[in-house]
């Protein structure tokens, strides 16, 4: 029936748009469910009592306890591993952001031979799987005495984060008008001061996005952290989580509570900076 009497195009368009909107919405919900389910499962498991855990699989927990969190808080996990990770991630973030900022400004403010070529080359690094550098890096680190040393891991994490941070910052700074900085220079500021006064406030979203990326990468990085910090006192959160899994008497409640605890800093970061992240990353993505 409907196909034999084609509706006028004008009235059909909004209907089709509505259909499209519903479809898009549904797709997003399904995707979100798929992505969020493991996290939900982790939270749900972490608040179950031991009895609740052993009485079968359920979507909605039927028992509730914070005992798992209590034991995580009292364990070495927070005292040692979270502390290690916080230190290394913060160090990585500062180091990476400063380097990326300096490099993007070098690229954007000065003209020299091979400027474009080197800028592209940097991102090319991601074409190679990082495992390739695992062994050489291990040797370099051990020769330099950087094993079990937070600065060694900071350096490695910075190497991993730098290309993307550089790219985020460069694209963002490219979109920040240059004239205010030049005006500041003409009206009496040095180059560095002009950048601080005129460009930095406008570049903040890009800088925060790059910093957040570096922090999250360092916080979650497992492979290098595992190889480079075998000393129990130097283990980071991901390495400690893995240890919890492989211990012979695995306590699911504690493991998941630790997992939740490990996710909280990242969630907090996202929540605090959602506004800037969106602006900072979008600039880079659509350039």
């Amino acid at each position: 029936m409907a196909s034999s009497t084609p509706a006028p195009a004008r009235s059909a368009a909004p209907v089709r748009n509505l259909g499209g909107a519903i479809l898009r919405g549904l797709t997003l919900i399904v995707l979100l469910l798929i992505f969020m389910f493991p996290f939900y499962w982790m939270v749900a498991t972490s608040v179950q009592t031991a009895e609740g855990l052993f009485s079968g699989v359920k979507i909605v927990p039927d028992t509730f306890t914070l005992a798992n969190y209590q034991s995580v808080l009292q364990s070495d996990f927070v005292r040692i591993n979270v502390r290690n990770s916080l230190l290394i991630a913060t160090g990585t973030t500062l180091l990476t952001t400063l380097l990326a900022l300096a490099a993007s400004l070098g690229y954007l403010r000065y003209r020299y031979r091979g400027r474009r070529f080197f800028s592209r080359l940097v991102v090319l690094v991601y074409l190679f799987p990082t495992v390739l550098v695992l062994v050489p890096l291990y040797f370099v680190a051990s020769r330099l005495g950087l094993l079990n040393n937070p600065f060694g891991l900071m350096a490695v994490h910075s190497v991993l984060a730098l290309p993307l941070c550089l790219w985020i910052l460069q694209s963002y700074l490219e979109g920040v008008p240059r004239e205010p900085e030049e005006a500041a220079m003409v009206f009496g500021a040095s180059r560095a001061r002009a950048f601080r006064i005129a460009t930095l406030p406008l570049a903040a979203p890009g800088i925060l996005a790059a910093a957040a990326f570096a922090f999250i990468l360092s916080w979650g990085e497992f492979m290098f952290a595992f190889i480079m910090g075998p000393d129990p006192a130097r283990k980071t959160v991901p390495v400690a989580l893995k240890d919890l899994f492989s211990s012979y008497a695995m306590d699911w409640g504690v493991v998941t509570a630790a997992g939740v605890a490990a996710t909280i800093p990242v969630l907090l970061l996202f929540w605090l900076m959602a506004k800037y992240l969106a602006a900072g990353l979008a600039k880079g993505a659509f350039d």
Partner: peptide, 20 residues
């Protein structure tokens, strides 16, 4: 000399005001 030592003032085409 760098701009700051030239004792000049400039009006830019798109104003170049400090937004903040």
């Amino acid at each position: 000399l760098p701009p700051k030592d030239r004792d000049i003032a400039m009006v830019f085409q798109n104003y170049a005001l400090f937004a903040h």
